[in-house]
């Protein structure tokens, strides 16, 4: 299983290998995040915005890898368009693993709802930690278990953890 992750902060390479990840993409270095992917056309980009219109408008751009739902109201229409444009729906595990009891329950419910919608419309799902420090990371084994816990089947959980492999292979070829 080739596991990949995306982090906010720089993670020590030895640690990422020990945790079972082939590569951990770093935001700000390997890829960008935000509302407008047009600002960095040659860098891979993850759209994270609560503005539904901006998400729907910018999703089709070629450098967009996927989106993170950020309190969006039109989740169904966004996920439907995501499925047709073959981009990924990123689910962040930091909120699930690093919260306290009730906040964690809300995060888990939210993640399960997104997984259910993604399954309904046939959108791809990827699990990322967006860790800013070592304390927000999880190992690849734990990432796989979280994927199964939020409702993905074994095969889909494997895909969710390996989803970034395509972008890693493309990056290495360049």
């Amino acid at each position: 299983m080739r596991c990949f992750d995306v982090s906010e902060g720089q993670i020590e390479k030895g640690l990422s290998k020990r945790l079972g990840f082939e590569h951990i993409f770093t935001l700000g270095r390997d890829m960008g995040i935000g509302t407008n992917p047009g600002a960095s056309r040659n860098t891979k980009f993850i759209i994270k915005s609560s503005d539904d219109g901006a998400v729907l408008r910018n999703m089709g751009m070629h450098n967009v890898v996927g989106i993170i739902m950020d309190q969006n109201k039109r989740q169904r229409s966004i996920i439907e368009k995501l499925a047709s444009s073959e981009k990924l729906l990123f689910i962040v595990t930091k909120g699930i693993t690093n919260s306290t009891t009730y906040a964690r329950l809300r995060e888990i419910q939210n993640a399960r709802k997104l997984v259910s919608l993604a399954h309904m419309y046939g959108a791809g799902v990827a699990l990322v930690s967006l860790a800013s420090s070592n304390e927000e990371l999880v190992s690849s084994m734990q990432m796989f278990e979280i994927a199964k816990f939020i409702g993905l089947s074994d095969a889909n959980a494997r895909h969710a953890v390996e989803a970034m492999a395509v972008h890693y292979d493309k990056k290495n070829k360049e």
């Binding site: 020990r18 693993t97 304390e135 927000e136 999880v138």
Partner: peptide, 16 residues
């Protein structure tokens, strides 16, 4: 993965 603190200090437990 859900344990964030042990003995009063922040710690993360990774399963290898």
């Amino acid at each position: 993965a859900f344990i964030n603190e042990l003995a009063g200090s922040k710690v993360k437990l990774y399963t290898l």
